[in-house]
Design a binder for these strands. Structure first.
Lengths: 145, 145
DNA sequence: ATTGCATTTGCAAATGAGTTGCAACTATTG
DNA sequence: CAATAGTTGCAACTCATTTGCAAATGCAAT
């Protein structure tokens, strides 16, 4: 298995940003590294196995420090849930779709803003950090009338 | 003043969707009618004066029934806060920008989706209900380093 | 290896927006 | 004017997240 390699990479990432290497941090980072769509704190907590060896609060704090260090991106959606995804060279920032019924999140291809919108953004002096599209996914569109 | 006219319009709106006319409903509806950007339940609660003559829970329930009836649009942002804006012929659905620092919401001009994004949406069978753009507004961009 | 000390962690309690149960109240219909 | 279905207020609850604080741990300098 490549577990050791991944582990080593995670250690390096921590050292790079000046965070101490702890079992908890490595566990959370590995989960984020191998996720294929953004996760909530609870998703991560669940994946730590049960009974959880890491306290819920610790997960929150780890995610918070990772965000501060720019290792992950954070965005909110659906009832104030925070979602997190690894931020690195291989994963440029992109919009997300989130289903209001089931909460499933889908990563979207980046897209160009229309001319009038871009104009408005420039005028307002706004800086865009995240675009989130909400609605119903295919499945929920059929199930929910 | 045109207060009576507005009041009458609000009464009509309630009758139209089959909701009973109550002082609380009229008060909330008038606040929404005269707002120039989306409001949270708390915004509305504040504007009801103090001490509030209407219970917080009642405001929540009124907003919920208005949403069910399609009189207002609801969307979430920033820590699960629900924002509400009047939905009528004069206010077509449009994206919103929300500042992550101060929570100010700005209504954006509608915009066309880029070709690749539209393709992805069609493929996924997604139905879009709201687009929300988050970042920092001009003011917060200067104040927050 | 050992020490010193700042960083991390775990636990308990708090927060804040929103929801639920239920009894009291009140528009509307007959 | 009475019946009844819709509304409201209050208290208590939920759920994700945050805060305070003492105990544990990583790391750098002995």
């Amino acid at each position: 298995m490549k577990t050791e390699i991944l582990h080593a990479a995670a250690e390096g990432a921590l050292r790079e940003v000046g965070l101490r290497k702890t079992a908890q941090r490595l566990a959370v980072l590995n989960i984020l590294n191998s996720a294929d769509s953004p996760l909530t704190a609870n998703d991560i907590f669940q994946r730590l196995g049960s009974p959880q060896k890491i306290n819920r609060v610790t997960v929150y704090r780890i995610l918070s420090s990772y965000t501060r260090k720019g290792m992950i991106r954070e965005f909110e959606s659906r009832r104030g849930l925070h979602y997190y995804e690894r931020a690195n060279a291989f994963s440029p920032s992109h919009p997300h779709f989130i289903c209001r019924a089931c909460g499933r999140m889908i990563c979207m291809t980046s897209f160009v803003l229309s001319e009038p919108l871009q104009k408005m953004i420039d005028q307002q002096g706004i800086s865009i950090e995240h675009i989130s599209i909400s609605g119903l996914c295919r499945l929920c569109r059929c199930n929910n009338p």
